[in-house]
Computed example of a mutant assay.
Amino acid sequence: MSKTTKRSLLYALGLLVLIAFAMWLRYASRYYFHSPAVGYLRSAIYLFLFGVWCYSLWARIVQVQVRHYMLAISALMVLWILLRSIKFSIDNTDVERLLWYFYYFPMLFIPMLSVFVSQSLGKGEDFRLPRWTKLLYLPTLLLLLLVLTNDLHQQVFSFPSGILSDQEYRYEVGFFFVLGWEALCAGFAFLSMVKNCRIPHSRRIRWLPLVPFALSLAYAYMYAKNVYWVWVLAGDITVSQCLIFASIFECCIHKAD
């Protein structure tokens, strides 16, 4: 086993240990430790992990365009976790709601930037994205604006009780436009990345990125169904989805031409 392989395995083991520790902290905070410090420590672990991942992307990816968009995606994941951490550390309904709306900045732009990554994988240094990809900014920005101005029209979330809070709300038609756009971009990006993965000898490995993608769908279903053990160990959907999407990107980066 080469030194590079051993080092990669050690890094992966350290990553898994930190994630397992953070999951345990979530469990412990529910039953043993009720101090806010536990939540801060768990958030700090994830911010550290994604910060390190961001640096590793900068160090590992040679193709300038792929590196540019991957760094943007990793920075958005850090921002998403930071917004979530701040939201749960304050006690102000209006600020909490605004932070909740701002979740949709990374939620909308990560799938869109994933399309850009999928079109850039395996290309040469002089490659430039097709012009049609620039058009993706328009619906993404319009949908973000729709969410951020929800208090004025309540076409994304409505509040039956009359209290503008994320504790009790109902999805409206605008939310499904947002969700549909996210799913469309993510699905297109995923299929394109799989297509650009090089595994000439094994179709099984070629579809390796499908594993974290399937886990993402399974997790979303169990989260929506309020499966108890999922709520206890991995009830933070922000962190869980960021970890799964990072896994998909890593599978594709390692297999890219």
Results as ranks from 00 to 15, higher is better:
Thr140Asn: 09
Leu141Gly: 09
Leu145Arg: 02
Leu145Glu: 10
Leu146Arg: 00
Val147Tyr: 06
Leu148Met: 09
Leu148Val: 14
Leu148Phe: 05
Thr149Ile: 01
Thr149Val: 04
Thr149Met: 07
Asn150Arg: 11
Asn150Ile: 14
Asp151His: 12
Leu152Ile: 11
Leu152Phe: 14
His153Phe: 06
Gln154Val: 08
Gln154Gly: 07
Gln155His: 11
Gln155Pro: 03
Val156Lys: 03
Val156Glu: 03
Val156Asn: 03
Phe157Gly: 04
Phe157Tyr: 15
Ser158Pro: 07
Ser158Val: 09
Phe159Lys: 12
Phe159His: 09
Pro160Tyr: 02
Gly162Gln: 11
Ile163Gly: 01
Leu164Cys: 00
Leu164Met: 13
Leu164Ile: 15
Leu164Lys: 10
Ser165Tyr: 00
Ser165Lys: 05
Ser165Gly: 11
Ser165Thr: 15
Asp166Ser: 15
Gln167Pro: 06
Glu168Ser: 14
Tyr169His: 13
Tyr169Arg: 13
Arg170Ile: 11
Tyr171Arg: 13
Tyr171Thr: 08
Tyr171Met: 12
Val173Lys: 03
Val173Met: 12
Val173Tyr: 12
Gly174Pro: 13
Gly174Thr: 05
Gly174Arg: 00
Gly174Ala: 05
Phe175Asp: 04
Val178Ala: 03
Val178Met: 09
Val178Arg: 09
Leu179Phe: 11
Glu182Asn: 09
Glu182Thr: 02
Ala183Gly: 12
Ala183Asp: 00
Ala183Ser: 12
Ala183Tyr: 11
Leu184His: 00
Leu184Met: 06
